[in-house]
Every structure is written in structure tokens, then in C-alpha cells.
Design a protein around this nucleic acid. Structure first.
Lengths: 332, 332
DNA sequence: TGCGGCGCTGACAACGTTGTCGAGATCATG
DNA sequence: CATGATCTCGACAACGTTGTCAGCGCCGCA
């Protein structure tokens, strides 16, 4: 900027005025400055600008999700990115992989980078460590999992209810030996889905077949293996409730390998691309990602615009999307 | 920082030394400073730090892909993010949606934010606008599409060859009426795939059935509609080469709707999750995302570490993954 | 002609941090 | 005890930018 000022024979302040399109500069000078800036390939330094500017805003937000390559997370990220771009806000994104230490480290990094806001799908049990930053006014929206130990905006899905619906749907089609395959119960959403499964069975007076409950599954491979083991039981289930999209995929693979797609009813939690063109098409409990993303963006940017009202908690009801796999009858 | 210094009764410089773990501070003072920092919830300001630091590094990189929610882009982003995190580098991500203006605007923004490096899947025809920044030493790696008008590192896939392979595979199974469904030919990769399709047919002495060539398809819906139209022709194709993953999905949907999965051979460009459990499983030309990501990361971080050698261009050969849909015989 | 006001410009300080350098204290050595 | 080396610490400037304010010239008006 100094060089530009020198070349245009003006002060740095005038250059600043020109690059920021501020009024009060003679057209002739403005032109001279622009030409000088062009000649020198001048590039404004936003970080310095942010430092000096009164607002202290960096026009950037941090988004911490579990796994950016998962279809749910990437759709969410995309939806936030679109809202951010409209407002000229950049998005810093990272994956947590259910690692609480990584979560703390990344949050600290984002805070040090002075992001204007934070979207967090927490991996940690409690987020007390965020207390000071929240009190200091860091706009933060929790997504998919509610905050614990601190108060903040949140957009979550009614996992218990969704799982009750899924289980009830299978019960309605005559199944009683219903397996549950899901992630580790240390993860709140997974625990809630398992809870919903238990409640659904209990409501129908069916006792939980504990040998058909498998947790700790994260990847398609783990889901596939678990499903294969269930198929090999002397008295296998007639239906499966898969607790998350990656597990559903593993289940479908295992059934296909055993040539058993039509002998086992399946309902999955989480919709995903192509679930509708599997054969049979997969019945799922859908969390409307678009709506979740819109809610999160809305809450976040409202805070950025200065809203300091009480933290809000939006609970989104997932919906059953019957496609075929969940409507299969009991077969032996 | 001033406040911490005051509370600990030391100079700001000493606080700086403590928070940066620099040697030469008495343990007693160090402790006092740490306690003061804790009491005041002090958070270092990385942007100010970057500004002052000699290196001028922001420890951040920009990643501009076409659509972060597409499985190919999100897998790529994830792989880059992992490499970046290992090095304590943050990732700024955004989607271009084939919009050249947006590309220029976002690049300008990232440059203003002083990212240390850039990964770009360009939407624009030429990237001359990047010349000044490249000359100024901005490490930049092009991915999926080679740079035009400037010289820079690039990791691309041999699209022509992949398409020749796909077409040849269908020819080998007896097909001659092979349709091509792909994206707009203004997109280089799409043009290359169409070119490969033409060459594959020519090599076998088969003339191109122009009425079966459809371009300008971007979404699954567009692909589905185009496929449906082809099915309604008096003399429909017996095989389809789908030029990208979203189009493949549309094609499969249309075939399924017409209950024609087994009467039409399909090869898709791009692998995607679940392609293997469709029925029939989808034969694809696979671009190894993991390898692409690793190459890009390798090139980028080597530049960040000071490598100033000539720009390198890595050409990755895609591979045919036969799964069933591409091996179907001619049926009428 | 004098004066207030407005349009334009630049000097200066400040944002939060770190590199440089020098001052004082402490220590080992002869 | 003197000397020099080392260790610890702080004052100051600087990174690239913008907010503040003052100054200059010019215009219109009484």
C-alpha cells in the first residue's frame, strides 16, 4: 500500500479510501491510485484490515462436523457455505471424527483465528471449555447434538422419536425379532436412537432381544460384519433397524452378499443419496438436511447481526420415508 | 495481552514469550503469567500474530471445488483437510458451481485473506487472472482440470483415455448403439470424455450415433429425463456411457422407472458410494480420489515447505471397475 | 471583503502481536 | 575481586491497515 501511495504520489490513507470505495476522493486521483495499484499488483491484506477495523470482524466462521466426507455432513456444510457466501463470509471447515481432544484443539484454533461464529457438532461429552468464549459473545450454534455444560443455540433432531417410529413401523409389519445396529452409545445421538428402539419395543409389549443389539459400529465394514454375524445366528432377526447411514450401507451389503435382500426388513436412520434406487429401495428415517442447515444458518447469522436474546433450541422431527425395505413381511 | 501483562506485573513481551513457549523466562514468572492469562480468559490473536511474524504465514489454505456436497469433491476435501490438520493448517473451503465469476471473486477473497496456498478445480476457461499471484509465489495446485493461460502444479485424470476404455468395454460386449450422456462441453473434463467416447467408437469403425449424444446434463434429474427420452426413441440405444456420477444416478433412476435395468448396459464415469450395491451393480471408470488427494496435498505442502522447482503435472489413469451393468449383453 | 462551510487530502495513532536490541542481574572463571 | 559470558527481562518499533482529526483551498453569501 505504501508503494502504491508513492507511485500515485498520494498518502496511504488516500489509497485506503480508493480500495475501499470510500467517497471524498477526486476522480482524477482515484484513477491514478487504481492504475498504480494495478501496475504493482496490489492486493489488500484483509487480516491487517480486520485487525484495525473497529468491528474486529474477520468475516469468517468455523464449521466443525464429524466427517466432512459423510453425505450428511457435506450436505450441511454446503448449505452453510451458501448462506455464508451470500454474506461475504468465508467458511473454515474441519472434521472431528468423534475425537473430543481434536474438538477442543480445533475450537481453540478457530477462536485464535477470531472467527465471527462457530457451528459445532460436538464429539465431546461436555463443552464446559467453551464457557468463557460463549460468555465473551462468540456466536455458536450446536447442530445434531445439544450442548451440555453450557448454554447455546442448537438445532437437533428428535432421535428418540425417530427411532420409536422406525421400530413401530417394523412392528406394524409383524416383526418382533428386530435387530438394532448402531454406533457407540457414548455418542448421544446413538444412545437416543437405541433408547427409542427400546421404547418402541416396550410400547408394543415386546421384550428387547439383547443378542440382536449391536453397538459401537461406525463404518460400513463394521456394519456389514455385524449383520453377517446376525445372519449366521441359529435364530436370526427378521428385521433390522440400522442406526446411521454408514451402518445401513453395511447392512445392505451383507444382505446382498447373503442374497437375502428380500428376506429381511430394514429401516435405516439417515437418508442418503441412492437409498431410493437400491432393491428393495431403503426405507429410512429422514433428517431434513436442508431444513437443518437453514435453521443453523439462520440462528448463526442472526447472532452475527447482533441478536443477543436467550439461546434457542430447535428440535426437528425426522420423518419416515417408506420405500420398500421396511415394509417387507416376516419371512423364514 | 496488555491486561495479562498488567495483572502479572510483567511486560507484554514476556507474556508473548510465555504464550509462545519461548525459552528464557523464569519458571516463577511463567507461572504467574499463565495464571493471569487463565484468570482473564486470554485468547491469543492469530491474525495479529501472523501480521507481525516475519514469515507472514497464516497457516491456512483455500480449497475451491465445484460442489462440496458432491461425493467426489467432499472426499477430496476431506483428504486435504487431513493433511492440513497434521500440519496445523486450517482449510477455507467453497463451492464454485461452474461459475467463472464466482471463481475469480473467491480467489480474490482468499488472496486478500492471505492464504498460504490454494487448491483449485477451476470453473473458468482460462486462469490468466491468477498470473500475478502465481508469479508472486502463491503455491497453487490445480485439481481435476489443468490450468490454462498460466503455469502451475496440477493433478488431473486422463479423461480421454478413461472414456475410450469405457466405450471399448461396451463395444467388447457387442454394443454398437451406445449413447453418451454428459455435462456441458464447455467443461474441459466433459469435453474430453465425449472426445474419448468418439475415439473409442472410431477405433472400432463404428460411426457416432449423434442422436444418442446428449450434453449439458449436470444434475441427476437432468440425466434421468434425458435417459427417459432416449428410451422412448423408436430405435433406442442398447448401452449408455454416463459422463459423470450425477448423470449415472439419473440414468439408473430412469432405467429403474422403466423397469429396464437389465436391458441396458451402463458404464459410468466416476465411482460413488453404493455403486456396488445397485442391481445390477454399476460398472464405472474410477478416479482414485484418495490418490488424487494425496498427490494434491503432496504438491501443495511441498511448495509450502519452499520447493520452487518447475510446475509439475501429475496425470492419473482411471481404472475400469466391472461390476455387472457394463457387461450386460445386447437386448432388444 | 470577510466568514462559514464543504470538499478533499494527509499526518498520526492505533489494532494485537513479535523481532531487535540493550540493560541489568547473575554466574563462572582466572 | 575483576572480567566476561550468560540469563532474564523490557522498551521500542514494526507488520498493513483504518479511524480521527486537522489543514488547506474554494465556494457562496452577506
Amino acid at each position: 500500500m505504501r508503494d502504491v501511495a508513492a507511485l500515485a504520489r498520494v498518502s496511504v490513507k488516500t489509497v485506503s479510501r480508493v480500495v475501499n470505495d470510500e467517497p471524498g476522493v477526486k476522480p482524477e486521483l482515484r484513477l491514478r491510485v487504481q492504475q498504480a495499484a494495478n501496475r504493482l499488483d496490489y492486493r489488500p491484506n484483509l487480516t491487517a484490515s480486520n485487525l484495525r477495523r473497529s468491528s474486529g470482524r474477520t468475516r469468517s466462521v468455523g464449521v466443525l462436523l464429524q466427517d466432512i466426507s459423510n453425505s450428511f455432513s457435506s450436505a450441511l456444510l454446503r448449505s452453510l457455505e451458501d448462506e455464508a457466501r451470500e454474506r461475504g463470509v468465508a467458511v473454515l471447515a474441519a472434521s472431528l471424527d468423534e475425537d473430543a481432544d481434536r474438538e477442543r484443539a480445533l475450537v481453540a484454533d478457530l477462536v485464535a483465528r477470531r472467527v465471527d461464529g462457530l457451528v459445532l457438532m460436538p464429539a465431546s461429552d461436555r463443552q464446559d471449555y467453551l464457557g468463557a468464549d460463549l460468555r465473551a459473545g462468540l456466536p455458536t450454534v450446536f447442530v445434531d447434538r445439544a450442548p451440555r455444560g453450557v448454554e447455546a443455540d442448537a438445532v437437533t433432531v428428535d432421535n428418540v422419536n425417530g427411532a420409536v417410529t422406525a421400530t413401530g413401523h417394523l412392528l406394524d409389519h409383524g416383526h418382533t425379532r428386530i435387530a438394532y445396529l448402531g454406533d457407540a452409545t457414548t455418542i448421544r445421538t446413538a444412545a437416543d436412537r437405541l433408547e427409542g428402539y427400546r421404547r418402541g419395543l416396550a410400547a408394543a409389549g415386546v421384550s428387547v432381544p439383547e443378542e440382536l443389539v449391536v453397538t459401537g459400529l461406525r463404518t460400513p465394514d463394521a456394519g456389514q460384519e455385524a449383520m453377517a454375524r446376525l445372519l449366521a445366528l441359529p435364530n436370526p432377526p427378521t428385521a433390522v433397524f440400522a442406526g446411521r447411514n454408514t451402518v445401513s450401507i453395511g447392512v445392505v451389503r451383507a444382505l446382498r452378499q447373503a442374497d437375502c435382500q428380500d428376506c429381511m426388513a430394514v429401516v435405516g436412520f439417515d437418508d442418503f443419496p441412492l437409498a431410493d434406487i437400491l432393491q428393495p429401495a431403503l426405507t429410512v428415517i429422514r433428517q431434513d438436511v436442508g431444513r437443518i442447515g437453514a435453521c443453523v444458518g439462520d440462528l448463526l447469522f442472526r447472532r452475527l447481526d447482533g441478536d443477543t436474546s436467550e439461546p434457542r433450541h430447535v428440535l426437528i422431527q425426522p420423518t419416515l420415508v417408506p420405500r420398500g425395505s421396511g415394509e417387507l413381511p416376516v419371512r423364514r
